[in-house]
Design a binder for these strands. Structure first.
Length: 883
RNA sequence: GCCCGGGUGGCGGAAUUGGUAGACGCGCUGGAUUCAAAAUCCAGUUCUGGCAACAGAGUGCGGGUUCGAUUCCCGCCCCGGGUACCA
């Protein structure tokens, strides 16, 4: 009897589809479980083997949870806006919608051949106008929300209190004031522009060396009017929210670093000869005594005033040069610090002494106050700068616990010390402050309170997180529901959503950095009832927009009246498990959390955080081959002999390496081919058997053969009714079956699929060895196999006479009483080295255990006539004789 | 530089979190079947020595704690990911 997966699998896939086996009812009587995959961008290349890894994992858990009695929401959809379809349109004239439709269709076909239990009635597509409508609706909410720092939450803009002095200035001032509070705003921003492609590109499309990933040309900065979102207002909430999430620590750390909270103080320095203060931000106010100079960023608003007459030209030149450098170039040159003295001095508030003010591009305008106090003895950057420009370096923190040589260097100002120590040179009779002898923590506290008492500084917090650039000069994205009127007013389209994309013939962006939408004149120009002329926003939203909230739409995907029914949202949210690639650790997951928190504050959603548990699947790599000199050889030119690899043409022996799948190495694995050759169940099983879900691991065809062999043997045994008997089950089989039920279930809950499969294999091996099992055993095996290999399991279930799918059969409960043992086979060690095994009754008193061990015939050899010093006896674990 | 992961047979990986290191699978070796091969089945397979029983070594390296360490602690080396003048 052959394992005809090519007949079995399509048959069951058709059955599930016809019977809507996996349609998810909104049945509130059952406990819910929401299992989400990161939905794919449907590229023209189709599925690669990385996709089914996460999808199979969630599918196994979904099937398992259904059998455990949960109402499982397990949907799939398409993140279908994006650049490739638009680039393709520019090249071929094919409308992105056409390409997108085709690609989604192909993805869906491929996914369906894997036997994944999605509820396809909930399928969504971010490009669907019915979906875009609600993406735009959320944008209008962002625009009409401000963040109330007192309450720590977002509130409707209508509730924003307007200070009297603003009101007094008139309507324009009020509008401006409100505009500065909105979570979405329109302003000048710098973007990356590729002059070769005539298009802007997203940050993530710019490689670290400043090249555009598509064409390799260097991108430049361009200043364009842009939409931005004030995500930093939620920085503290986004940071705190991480604490309660069951997420990989690495992802939480990355988000924490990205948010970048730091605490310190702002300090005002009196500028000599001007009636002005220069405000700096520092995390180390305790090192004020060591501040021997100051630096302002080249973009600092006070710079012009600060520069003395005969330094004007030099400084101007420097600032101009700095502004031409991109951030990237600035970091590139990080090793070599540059800067110019402004000729101006400020008074160090704790010493009362003047210190020079420099301008240097290692200080960024976008962080803190754009100005710093420089403490070269205790900050590596300041140290480098001071050494280069021969500025005094005053050590004020004695590294008393450091080794003598280092300490001497630091004290002499010849090395930089950033760790803790005891203050020296940190008192001033003139100002009355003295922190000598204190440690870092106490020093910071004392200086801050001293500054606060005098009104020249205060404790404060800073975040690295910046405003989110939320627009792209693109066609294939969500249009903004926004009209710019000729009088400068901006208004939202709120009543007539969605604003749909106009049909275009040409998709090239405009010369001046405008979106292709600027060419759609009919669509573009609008006139209001008073004859006022306006222009629609021509930017579109970035791809993140649709993916920020898609998990909410699955809950009620066809609702045209509301974004979703709140009753349903309340039942289904939050997402219980979210699986996807680690590449989204920061951006997608942070953006999503941000939107979700805004929606939560506005009462739209019922949970503060969207994703309770997150798990990242690892990347799947492939073997590749290279010659002894390191030249890569494409996989079609490699043959294997006796575990070694040779070039088919030159005969040269090759080295096997692990690399990313790539067209150039010809080592890309197409899931379609695997399904055709071994079947979907084998593909699923192998993807899970390769190793831990979150590991990076190489694809090996022999591994697929291995799991295929397992399914073939399982089929040969369990699908042959000659092997299925009536009556009592063999005790060994029965015991192992109970253990397997427990192991497989636990491993699914813990996402340890590789060892779960191993347990199924072990059981299969025993059953085959025994030659027969009872029908009850065979049915149980089919059930616990079913999350992994659902097609084969359904086939067996049907064979055993059942008419219905086993998808909702209760998960077997192990009879643990069968596993209770009254003896245990102890490994007996001498000095920690296992020497022999000894079966003993569990209730044997310790004394008798020792007796039994020492009187064992093999014990004499290891005792070697000595008397044991001690005998360690750990019941049910081990016996160790210490000599 | 900084922050996270991770180093276990020829290979992918197990090991109940301090208790028999190498489950399961691949590969390899031998055997059965076959005219032969593929497929399948059976046996073996960490390394070293030995026909064998068995003995010794062994989880990146060097120390330490412990009756006992892949697991805990200290100091290194290597690999992968993230981040980068954030004051």
């Amino acid at each position: 009897m052959d394992y005809k997966f090519w007949e079995i699998e399509p048959r069951w896939q058709a059955y599930w589809e016809e019977n809507k086996t996996f349609k998810t009812p909104n049945d509130f009587s059952k406990p819910k479980y929401y299992i989400l995959d990161m939905f794919p961008y449907p590229s023209g290349a189709g599925l690669h083997v990385g996709h089914p890894e996460g999808y199979t994992a969630t599918d196994i858990l979904s099937r398992y949870k259904r059998m455990k009695g949960f109402n499982v929401l397990h949907p799939m959809g398409w993140d279908a806006f994006g650049l490739p379809a638009e680039q393709y349109a520019i090249q071929t004239g094919t409308h992105p919608a056409v390409t997108t439709f085709k690609n989604c269709d192909n993805f869906k076909r491929q996914i369906k051949t894997l036997g994944l239990s999605y509820d396809w009635d909930r399928e969504i597509n971010t490009t669907d106008p019915k979906y875009v409508k609600w993406t735009q609706w959320i944008f209008t909410k962002l625009y009409n929300t401000w963040f109330d720092y007192e309450q720590g939450k977002g509130r409707p803009i209508s509730e924003l209190p307007i200070p009297e002095e603003i009101q007094a200035e008139g309507e324009a001032a009020v509008k401006e004031y409100i505009g500065k509070k909105r979570l979405a705003y329109y302003d000048n921003a710098q973007v990356w522009w590729c002059d070769n492609c005539k298009t802007v590109c997203a940050n993530e499309e710019v490689l670290t060396d400043g090249a555009h990933e598509k064409c390799g040309h260097h991108v430049i900065r361009k200043n364009l009017k842009q939409w931005l979102l004030r995500i930093p207002h939620y920085a503290q909430r986004l940071l705190e929210g991480l604490d309660d999430l069951d997420w990989p620590e690495g992802v939480k750390d990355m988000q924490k670093n990205w948010i970048g909270k730091s605490t310190g103080a702002e300090v005002d320095f009196q500028v000599e000869g001007l009636d002005q203060q220069l405000r700096v931000y520092t995390t180390r106010p305790d090192t004020l005594f060591g501040a021997t100079y100051m630096v302002v960023s080249p973009e600092h608003p006070m710079l012009n005033e600060l520069v003395v007459a005969d330094k004007q030209e030099e400084v101007q030149q420097y600032s101009k040069a700095a502004s031409l450098k991109s951030d990237l170039d600035r970091t590139e040159l990080a090793k070599d610090k540059t800067g110019v003295f402004t000729g101006r001095y400020a008074i160090n508030p704790v010493t009362g002494l003047p210190i020079p003010i420099w301008v240097a591009d290692y200080v960024l305008m976008g962080y803190g106050t754009g100005a710093i106090m420089a403490v070269p003895a205790h900050d590596t950057r300041d140290f480098e700068f001071a050494e280069k420009f021969e500025i005094p370096i005053t050590c004020i923190l004695d590294p008393k616990d450091a080794d003598a040589e280092v300490r001497e260097q630091v004290l002499a100002g010849k090395a930089c010390w950033t760790e803790d120590g005891a203050y020296i040179n940190s008192s001033s009779e003139k100002t009355g402050l003295d922190i000598n002898g204190l440690n870092k923590k106490d020093g910071i506290a004392k200086v801050i309170s001293w500054l606060e008492d005098r009104g020249i500084g205060h404790a404060t917090t800073n975040f690295k997180l910046r405003d989110w650039l939320f627009s792209r000069q693109r066609y294939w994205g969500e249009p903004f529901p926004v009209i710019h009127w000729e009088d400068g007013e901006i208004s939202l389209v709120e009543d007539d959503l969605p604003v749909t994309l106009p049909d275009l013939q040409k998709f090239e962006p405009g010369e001046g950095g405008e979106s292709p939408l600027a060419n759609a004149t009919d669509w573009l120009n609008v006139v209001d009832e008073n004859g006022r002329k306006g222009r629609r926003e021509t930017n579109t939203m970035p791809q993140w927009a649709g993916s920020c909230w898609y998990f909410l739409r699955y809950i009620d995907p066809n609702n045209d009246e509301q974004i979703f029914d709140p009753k349903l949202e309340n039942y289904w949210m939050p997402v219980d498990l979210y699986i996807g690639g680690a590449e989204h650790a920061v951006l997608h997951l942070l953006y999503s959390r941000f939107w979700h928190k805004v929606l939560f504050d506005l009462g739209v959603v019922s949970t503060d955080e969207p994703f309770k548990r997150l798990y990242n699947q690892g990347m799947i790599l492939a073997f590749a081959y290279e010659t002894q000199t390191g030249a890569k050889v494409t996989s079609d030119l490699v043959e294997e002999k006796d575990g070694k690899y040779f070039h088919t043409q030159t005969g040269e022996e090759l080295r096997q390496i692990v690399a990313k799948m790539s067209k150039s190495l010809k080592n890309v694995i197409n899931p379609d081919d695997v399904v055709e050759k071994y079947g979907a169940d084998s593909l699923r099983l192998y993807e899970m058997f390769m190793g831990p879900l979150d590991d990076t691991k190489p694809w090996a065809e022999n591994g697929v053969k291995g799991v295929f062999g397992f399914l073939t043997r399982a089929h040969r045994f369990f699908a042959n009714t000659d092997h299925i008997t009536e009556g009592e089950e063999d005790l060994e089989v029965l015991k192992l079956l109970q253990q397997t039920i427990i192991k497989v279930g636990d491993d699914i809950e813990n996402l340890k699929f590789n060892t779960g499969i191993s347990a199924l294999m072990v059981f299969n091996n025993l059953a085959i060895k025994k030659g027969k099992v009872t029908k009850a055993t065979a049915e149980t095996f089919a059930k616990i196999l079913s999350p992994y290999a659902p097609h084969l399991a359904e086939e067996l279930w049907r064979l055993y006479g059942h008419k219905e799918s086993l998808a909702y059969e209760p998960w077997p409960v192990a009879d643990e009483s069968l596993l209770v043992e009254d003896t245990h086979e102890y490994p007996v060690s001498f000095n920690g080295k296992m020497r022999f095994k000894l079966e003993l009754a569990l209730d044997l008193p310790a004394k008798e255990v020792e007796q039994a061990v020492l009187s064992h015939e093999l014990a004499q050899k290891w005792l070697d006539g000595k008397t044991p010093k001690k005998i360690i006896y750990v019941p049910k674990k081990i016996i160790n004789v210490v000599l």
